[in-house]
Simulated assay, not measured.
Amino acid sequence: MNIVRFTAPDNSEHYGVLEGDTVKALAAPPFKGIEFSGLVYPLDSVKLLAPCAPSKIVCLGVNYHGHAKEMGHTIPDAPLIFLKPSTAVIGPEADIIYPPSSQRVDYEAELAVVIKKPVWRVSREAARDSILGYTCFNDVTARDLQKQDGQWTRAKGFDTFAAVGPWITTGIDPSSLTVETWLNGERKQHGNTVDLIYPIDYLIHFVSHVMTLLPGDVIATGTPSGIGPMHPGDTVEVRIEGIGTLRNYVTRTD
Rank of each mutant, 00 (worst) to 15 (best):
S225P: 14
I240R: 00
A142V: 00
S225Y: 14
P166S: 07
V140I: 08
A142W: 04
T22E: 10
H190P: 07
G72L: 05
Q103T: 14
V210P: 10
D195Q: 08
P199C: 04
I3N: 13
L183K: 02
H190K: 09
F6T: 08
I34N: 06
S123N: 12
I57R: 06
I34P: 00
F6I: 15
K24S: 01
H65K: 15
T141Q: 05
D129G: 10
L203Y: 05
P215K: 12
V122T: 03
I131Y: 09
R247Y: 11
C136N: 12
W120T: 10
D201F: 00
N248W: 03
G226H: 15
T245A: 06
E186Q: 10
D77H: 11
Y15A: 04
K147M: 13
D44N: 15
L183G: 15
L203K: 06
S208Y: 14
G185E: 01
H205K: 05
D77N: 15
P79A: 02
K56W: 04
A27F: 09
Y198E: 00
P232Y: 07
Y107S: 06
H14E: 09
S102E: 01
V207N: 13
G185L: 00
Y202G: 11
I115N: 12
D21F: 13
M1G: 02
G157M: 05
R239L: 08
V17Y: 03
K156G: 08
T223Y: 04
Y249R: 05
I240P: 02
V62C: 09
V236R: 12
G61Y: 13
L43R: 10
H231K: 14
V207Y: 12
L26P: 09
I227D: 08
I200H: 04
E19F: 12
Y41R: 04
V40R: 12
A88V: 09
D195G: 14
D10I: 03
P99C: 14
V46W: 10
S101H: 08
G165A: 09
V46I: 11
T223W: 02
I204H: 00
T178Y: 10
D217K: 12
Q103M: 14
